[in-house]
Design a protein around this nucleic acid. Structure first.
Lengths: 233, 233
DNA sequence: GAGTGGTCTAGACCACTTT
DNA sequence: AAGTGGTCTAGACCACTCC
């Protein structure tokens, strides 16, 4: 049973993106053009583009064209920074402190990061909203996939925009594991927490457009003022 | 600018479900049949059915037909009970205790529940996994929408299956607001928690197929053994 | 074998955006 | 005016399920 034709069109587009031939924010060929290039009918190319849109890989705009998904700082924070006031408003967190270092990967990191890197780069940041520290984030990525990350400090607030713009790595989704925890002394100090205030501990594995596990992130959030807001479906 | 034809087909199907003319688990007319009934071409009926599938309202199976989404106990727990071992396995929680009562709605509940009910039914349950209490859940629903709920005790583990089978109310998604909290004495006792163990406090608003806010649920989870696992995208 | 959804084509017309 | 995606049709063939 051969794969459907539209799958080959999808593969072709993803390959062009992964190879850098198509850049984030860039425009794809039109439906008819893409159909001609891949030897299928316009309707089949259309089906492929619609599926790519459903996977979040492209965005389609009537009258304008089809564009590679580009993470904007606003959109990226909207999707992946879930700490919000209870009314759901969006507040942009500022980066207060940042420390970047490279070190050998732990066994666990090698097993769960794409490419089993021997060396990883660790980004430790404290974020604040309205001047109050609200999150401690420790991101770990493969040093092979993101070379020279240390020299780019200070990094932008939305890391995933940097991954995309500087390294062509487009983050699409993430799995998270959440727990309530009594913070250790270091975390409590970083977040200027009163004693006996529990924090949210969130472990994240982020995946890119190719399904690769690209980043591990351990975050601690204050939730006395803000809440971690998500949707299930 | 008139709405597209497939929208009228979608509306027609949703109306039939809401009216009870089509029951959860039941089969829809075939694409060609539905097309004839609604006066559109088969391709347009197909588009409507695909959109209904994307909204989670129907399920399509090649060679068999298109069926109204039916929440099974397993599927419902899989989607809406997110407490898992860190390896992601699914464990079915048991209901240990259950207390049902009706009372006047608070102002907050009237404002956030469909129909601004004067009276609500409150379901208080303790769930356990492997004999260890892991969650305290307090669900609140409109007494108008779910009449006679108290007389159905003990309720099944998966409440959303009951909502569907007994009341024709199909839950599709939910918004959650998560925080870490030091449990009060009552919660600590209910979960047999050691002192100074924080819990996850999760406030949920669940929505049904018509977009109505149908249930508010306040849950407290132990996260020392299990974690609350979600996906962002 | 009959009925279902899945894929694919070819063409038409419309609405929107840009030049 | 030209080019894009959005809608809609009509028809073909295939793969799967069930009787």
């Amino acid at each position: 049973m051969p794969p459907p034709l539209y799958q080959s069109v999808i593969d072709e587009v993803v390959a062009r993106i992964a190879s850098g031939q198509l850049l984030p924010g860039g425009m794809l060929p039109s439906e008819t053009q893409l159909a001609a290039e891949t030897g299928v009918s316009q309707g089949t190319a259309r089906k492929a583009l619609i599926m790519l849109e459903q996977h979040g890989i492209v965005r389609r705009e009537q009258g304008r064209g089809t564009f590679i998904t580009a993470r904007t700082p606003e959109g990226s924070l909207f999707n992946f920074f879930r700490l919000r006031p209870r009314d759901g408003r969006i507040l942009s967190p500022q980066v207060e402190q940042e420390r970047i270092s490279s070190r050998p990967a732990t066994q666990d990191e090698q097993a769960s990061l794409q490419g089993a890197p021997a060396t990883v780069t660790e980004i430790r940041r404290i974020r604040s909203i309205n001047g109050a520290p609200c999150a401690l984030e420790i991101s770990v990525v493969s040093a092979d996939l993101f070379p020279g990350l240390e020299r780019r400090s200070p990094l932008p607030s939305a890391l995933y925009v940097l991954y995309q713009q500087a390294y062509g790595c487009i983050i699409l989704n993430a799995d998270e594991s959440i727990a309530a925890e009594q913070p250790d002394a270091e975390t409590r100090q970083a977040l200027t927490l009163p004693a006996d205030t529990p924090v949210l501990r969130v472990e994240r594995v982020a995946h890119d457009i190719l399904g690769r596990s690209v980043e591990r992130r351990l975050s601690f959030f204050r939730t006395d003022q803000l809440n971690y807001m998500i949707r299930l479906d």
